[in-house]
Design a protein around this nucleic acid. Structure first.
Length: 278
DNA sequence: TATGGCCTGTAC
DNA sequence: GTACAGGCCATA
């Protein structure tokens, strides 16, 4: 499930298409386009000038001014159409499954936006700042650390929710999903149910969020279910996880059993002993 | 502020 | 067959 480190890994993998011309766009499944906004003609024939990312959003910049904004949600992937990660049935244009290649972007090679579930989105955007402010996406914690940190401290002041729920809120910190929320709270030794305003040392928690992002980035992300980067690789950070998906297993620090509860509608993993009572 | 729905594959 | 995975949005 792509969170910030996974999206960043995808971005890096797509760098090889930089300065290439987008000669064709084939939309197979129009339902991936959100807000009904997708102006193919704005991108067609334009050169990919750079690739950016904000939180979990991937941004293709064409001719320095036209933007294609993609969100992978759970299962979205950008892959060469030739990749073996895309099943044969999906490549077969006569098959119903071929719709899972929601779109195909032709650079020097065909790049597919392959998404088994239909949660991923693509849209063309002119004013990026306006787009992200409408969506209330916080500054990117890696690209814009100082700003993102201040934003985080400001936003958590008046929150009346548990810290776990708040970490999942993209308007507070961009790029944290269920895995890294649990992992960051473990590293910060904070119980996920802790009410946000009771956090005594937000600086320390912020540090741990950044730590876990950087660590995951070094390993090319986690592939709990089926995340793949732009070269079809899966990343190995899942082997380093302390709590996520480790329900009932021994804590790496104290050897007591990792617990799982439901919080903010999400499975939440923690060590009762390392992360206090509440 | 909490919830259900969107989707489909996988595990039981 | 059912439950579950979860990012985000709409709804109450």
């Amino acid at each position: 499930m792509p969170e910030l480190p996974e999206v960043e890994s995808v971005r890096l993998g797509l760098e090889k298409y930089r300065n290439q011309r987008l000669s064709k766009i084939l939309i197979r499944d129009k339902s991936v386009l959100f807000e009904g906004q997708f102006s193919e003609n704005k991108l067609n024939g334009k050169k990919l000038s750079s690739l950016k990312r904000r939180g979990k959003y991937l941004i293709f910049v064409f001719d320095h001014k036209y933007h294609l904004v993609a969100h992978l949600r759970m299962t979205g992937k950008f892959l060469p159409l030739t990749s073996t990660v895309i099943p044969k049935a999906v490549k077969d244009e006569t098959s119903k499954k071929s719709l899972q290649c929601r779109a195909i972007f032709t650079f020097k090679e065909d790049v597919a936006f392959y998404d088994t579930r239909r949660f991923g989105t693509l849209t063309t955007v002119e004013d990026l700042e306006l787009f992200f402010s409408k969506k209330k996406i916080a500054p990117d914690p890696i690209e814009n650390q100082i700003q993102a940190q201040q934003h985080f401290f400001d936003k958590i002041q008046d929150r009346k929710q548990s810290i776990k729920a708040v970490l999942l809120d993209q308007s507070v910190v961009a790029g944290v999903g269920n895995i890294y929320a649990d992992e960051a709270l473990f590293l910060a030794k904070i119980h996920p149910k802790t009410m946000t305003k009771k956090i005594r040392n937000p600086e320390h928690l912020w540090e741990k969020i950044i730590d876990v992002f950087n660590l995951a980035l070094r390993y090319g992300g986690s592939s709990i279910i089926n995340y793949r980067d732009a070269d079809g690789r899966s990343g190995t950070f899942q082997e380093k996880l302390n709590v996520y998906g480790r329900n009932g297993l021994a804590c790496n620090i104290c050897k007591r059993k990792i617990q799982m509860i439901y919080l903010a509608g999400r499975s939440t993993h923690f060590c009762k002993s390392c992360q206090g009572k509440n």
